[in-house]
């Protein structure tokens, strides 16, 4: 049975178990986010996706990414109060991650030209906003190399025992989901260095572009995500080979 609710005075239908954010996005209503990824479990850490929700007599400011839709809910995504609280949370994040373009842009959009706050005392990974997207992505892929460590104002992202982790395969997925791009990754022609380890790169048999790391391939074969005789051709080369085959048939 569908749930009927209102977002910015627009009547919309949603399924039970859906969250406000996904329903709004489907309607083309955009809500800013920093810690959300549709393929990963929700966390609700950045507190940027704020909306105002009225449910019966209860009215509250809450986060859209992790709030379940409910019958009769009235959601407002762009009130002055919502913008004010988003701006304050971005001002806090701006003190933590002054050089992160995503934070800076969003902050500027909300009128936060600079932060009135000092940089936090504990900030071992500069510009990290502790959104745990990296941790969630790494776990989702079955590697579980990264951890959220400590708590409170000492929370940080790191590797167990602060040394290179056996579980890390150097896939770089953590960086690709990181909204602040604050994870260090260095590549040479043959290697990739990330989280204190250097990995050999597997290159495309056809064009020579890097496809993945050796460790990543070994992990994928071990977990049967890839066949044992997986051929290391990059997607681009696979596509062009396919289109060449197609062309040879047509012409």
């Amino acid at each position: 049975m569908s749930i009927r609710l209102w977002i910015d005075d627009r009547e919309v239908l949603a399924e039970p178990g859906e969250r406000i954010l996904e329903v709004a996005q489907r309607q083309g209503i955009s809500i800013p986010t920093l810690c959300h990824h549709p393929a990963l479990p929700v966390l609700g850490a950045c507190r940027v996706c704020l909306v105002e929700v009225q449910q019966g007599k209860r009215r509250e400011i809450t986060t859209a990414c992790n709030t379940l839709v409910q019958e009769g809910m009235r959601v407002a995504t762009d009130t002055a109060e919502v913008r004010g609280h988003r701006a304050m949370n971005l001002e806090l994040l701006r003190a933590r991650a002054p050089e992160a373009p995503a934070v800076r842009e969003l902050a500027t959009q909300l009128g936060v030209a600079r932060s009135r706050f000092r940089p936090p005392a504990q900030n071992p990974l500069p510009n990290c906003i502790l959104c745990e997207l990296c941790v969630r992505a790494c776990a989702h892929l079955g590697h579980h190399a990264l951890a959220a460590v400590g708590r409170g104002d000492k929370k940080r992202i790191g590797l167990p025992h602060n040394r290179p982790a056996e579980a890390c395969v150097g896939c770089g997925s953590c960086l690709s989901v990181c909204p602040t791009r604050c994870i260090l990754l260095k590549e040479t022609a043959t290697t990739r260095t990330i989280w204190g380890q250097t990995f050999e790169l597997v290159r495309c048999k056809s064009c020579g572009a890097p496809v993945m790391t050796e460790a990543q391939r070994a992990h994928a074969i071990r977990t049967k995500q890839l066949p044992e005789d997986h051929d290391d051709t990059c997607e681009l080369c696979k596509q062009s080979a396919a289109s060449q085959r197609l062309a040879s048939v047509v012409w």
């Binding site: 579980h144 951890a147 959220a148 167990p160 025992h161």
Partner: peptide, 22 residues
């Protein structure tokens, strides 16, 4: 001990370390 605990319970080192430091 933490590494063995992880193995014993079927958890990753990262999960155990995250909990132990929390």
């Amino acid at each position: 001990a933490l590494e063995r605990a992880a193995e014993h319970l079927g958890l990753s080192s990262a999960e155990v370390y995250g909990v132990a430091t929390f």
